[in-house]
Amino acid sequence: MTGIPGTVIGRPGGSLVDAGWAKNAAVADIGRAGEQRTAAVLNDLARLPSGPTVLHDLRIPIPGFTANIDHVVVAGSRVTIIDSKVWRHGIYWTAAGRTRRGLEKIDFADKKTLPTAQAALRRHLDSRMTRDTVFGPNILAVWPAGDGALLTFAYRPQDAVVVHGRTLRRRLPRLTGAAPADPVIVQILSQLVNGTDA
């Protein structure tokens, strides 16, 4: 099987344009900026000679499920899901399955969207392919909002690797792989990209 050389499909932050579910327009704008920062790093990876394929803003294939997948990297038959976040400065830490920023409990940091999205994509691909797909570790790319320090070394989300935005470029190739993508996987996943007619 010959892979597809690096390609970028979709628009980062597309689901945050006119996002009525967001707390307010400023929150949606901050989230969109975080997705675009992550996308810039991912798109550079895709532009490498024989790089992977990057998809932005995918629907999670679960009827009625409203959350989206911010980014997916397909390197060979390996699929990696990446969620982008922009968080206020502080020390994020997890103990007994609960995350806090300082002493404040932070419920949004313990959401199970990434493992849910991975399970749904696995079922979706398995129902359409005869060969196995390998899923890399889910990645949570966290960018700081403002100038304060954002420390995530003690933050332990379930089923994800936390990568601070400033180290994303260096760590990404090892976490996602950098090989040309399996064209069948790309064809199936591209139908989930928001804004496509599939």
Rank of each mutant, 00 (worst) to 15 (best):
M1S: 10
M1I: 08
I9R: 11
G14K: 05
G14F: 00
S15C: 11
V17L: 13
G20Q: 13
G20A: 09
K23W: 14
N24Q: 10
V27A: 15
I30V: 13
A33F: 14
A33K: 11
G34P: 14
G34F: 08
A40G: 06
L42S: 09
L45G: 00
A46T: 14
P49C: 04
T53I: 06
V54P: 06
V54N: 02
L55W: 11
D57K: 12
F65W: 15
N68C: 12
I69G: 02
V74M: 01
A75W: 01
A75C: 15
A75P: 02
G76S: 08
S77R: 15
T80E: 07
I81M: 06
I82K: 01
S84N: 10
K85T: 07
K85C: 01
H89C: 02
W93T: 01
G97D: 01
R100I: 10
R100Q: 02
R101T: 09
R101Q: 15
E104Y: 10
K112Y: 08
L114I: 10
T116V: 15
T116K: 08
A119Y: 13
S127Q: 10
R128T: 01
M129W: 12
T130E: 12
T130D: 03
G136L: 06
L140N: 11
L140C: 06
L140P: 11
A141V: 06
W143H: 13
W143T: 11
A145F: 12
D147C: 05
D147E: 03
D147M: 08
G148F: 01
L150M: 02
L151A: 07
T152W: 05
F153C: 06
A154D: 07
P157Y: 04
A160S: 04
V161F: 08
G165T: 15
L168E: 12
R169D: 07
R171H: 13
L172I: 14
L172W: 12
P173H: 07
G177E: 01
A179S: 05
D182L: 06
V184D: 15
S190W: 09
N194W: 05
T196A: 14
